[in-house]
Design a protein around this nucleic acid. Sequence first.
DNA 1: TTCTGGCACTCGTCTGTTCGGAGTGCCAAA
DNA 2: TTTGGCACTCCGAACAGACGAGTGCCAGAA
Lengths: 344, 344
Amino acid sequence: MAGEVRQLDERKLAVLRAIVQDYVGTEEPVGSKALVERHNLGVSPATVRNDMAALEEDGFIHQPHTSAGRIPTDKGYRLFVDRLAEVKPMSAPERRAIRHFLDGAVDLDDVVARTVRLLAQLTRQVAVVQYPSLSRSTVRHIELVALAPAKVMLVLITNTGRVEQRMVDCPGTVGEVVLADLRARINARAVGVRLPEVPGLLDELPAMFEAADRPAVTVVLATLFEALAEQNEERIMLAGTANLTRFGHDFPLTIQPVLEALEEQVILLRLLGETADAGMTVRIGRENAYEGLNSTSVVSVGYGSGDESVAKLGVIGPTRMDYPGTMGAVRAVARYVGQILAES
Amino acid sequence: MAGEVRQLDERKLAVLRAIVQDYVGTEEPVGSKALVERHNLGVSPATVRNDMAALEEDGFIHQPHTSAGRIPTDKGYRLFVDRLAEVKPMSAPERRAIRHFLDGAVDLDDVVARTVRLLAQLTRQVAVVQYPSLSRSTVRHIELVALAPAKVMLVLITNTGRVEQRMVDCPGTVGEVVLADLRARINARAVGVRLPEVPGLLDELPAMFEAADRPAVTVVLATLFEALAEQNEERIMLAGTANLTRFGHDFPLTIQPVLEALEEQVILLRLLGETADAGMTVRIGRENAYEGLNSTSVVSVGYGSGDESVAKLGVIGPTRMDYPGTMGAVRAVARYVGQILAES
DNA sequence: TTCTGGCACTCGTCTGTTCGGAGTGCCAAA
DNA sequence: TTTGGCACTCCGAACAGACGAGTGCCAGAA
């Protein structure tokens, strides 16, 4: 008995898989007859119809109107992604191409720019790449430069190649010697340390300077802490918006909220923020918190220079997307970007 | 006689103006009767029809099909912009709002970001703002920092607040003293000078150093020149793509090439590059060199911190746009950005 | 019990036709 | 030169009918 029930279930799953695959390919509701023709399920259309009715009952597929084919629901895609699909690995030539394209990058900006374009091209969808975040990275070097007697430029360089600079207006003049001393002491303590942990290590620094210099030292440190903490400086790069035109027929209605979402960095950051730290995250249709993206799916993953992820990247497309292919591309690109970052 | 011909021409122009205004408002071909109703032209529909026939003969308007109203052609819009429309000044509250919004900016990135968003909101179209270009700005400071024995970081700060940094791999070790010397000499010559003119002033510099240091000095200078010259580093910021959805009915066809164009910084830069240095430039439909923008108009203008323009900004919208209003907004925003830049 | 073929039924899409109305061009009169 | 009138064009909405894809159900076969 149990065996037969499982047998049945497996065929239903096969039907669902076939429906998803066909619908993704054709963009048209798929009927029982066409299904049997294209996939050799070994049963008749009538049987498939029964299964379809059951699948519909369970909410995995849905009919636009009586006497039309079936379309997968968000729930159906979810099941497909979780249990029926395998991430499709990139082919060797594709991997070589990715590698080659990313290797040409000259600096961090370029890496991110190339990555996002590459991802958009590979998936033919909208790609989003977050800059390696400050909070996960470590200090490579901190530089202080006197521009004027009371004006200091602060430069923060991270191990991910990111450079932040600030102007500091000091109360009173700061001697070159004091500045050099401060620079040396800061670097001695901070280099190699994770950004959020830096402030704790510099606590007792003002006390080590002459009373006259202390105000200036304090201001410089305050600015440094500010630069370290500024999470909302997180930047994002986008590409492939033109691919939105391939979205669907009910065009302006679907596309407008998506375009609006894409303009709001905050929304995109939150979107990527929901990505699990390890493994790939797929958010389908209404699973997305942001309403404007209710008819889209987001495939995202963390990437990083070493073992751990310092930022996220992903792809936004219609719920009707090629999940295995998209996931394969996203994973491959994330992996290679990680390697590039580790090398530089 | 001549007087009567002029009289006639003026009415024709009035008719054209009315057609443009109505069409921009309604998006529908405008007929003779409706025209007479909405504008008090003081003549009958039949007369207007005669004028319309003449205008069509001259290529200023055009009929989608017999027995439909008329639509302005690119040539018609051109005439409208050149002779029939006046730039519509912003109202006092609008100006205050612009001023207030831009005043909140904290650094150059922020100024540009706010400007582009503001412009998109005001015009309800796609806004494009070019970062103050390197070639027009002057050197405020050049800094050299030794990160490792053979690794130097070069930082270039311009009077517009822009900061560029490069890593330099030197052949052999560079002493701290040499570096300080080089820094001092470079700054002494370059500060306050326009970027493109800097290389010429540093020609004889290598000769002033010991033979052993010369290779390193040469490499540093080469990198600096590269940073100075790198015109294609010109960056652009975009906003308001969601406004494209209000474009028209024949949607995907029109919008796709536009989205593609917007993704290509090169195209946008060329677009802005065609802006006349002084005064506002309006490119209508096929006047745009880039084919994908053949059904759009571009309104652009230079802006700058002082008298002269250091960069361009503009708006991209359908040829059927509110030219007076758009031009007014573009002009006002450019003016205020200029002021903000001059102040900082 | 499960699958299958057959059959009646639903309903959306396509096609052709009709019809009203907006708009035109032309002409004769003011 | 302008105007009112008139015949004409042609788009687009509305309607009807045919077509076909697809379904659900049922009775019989495996």
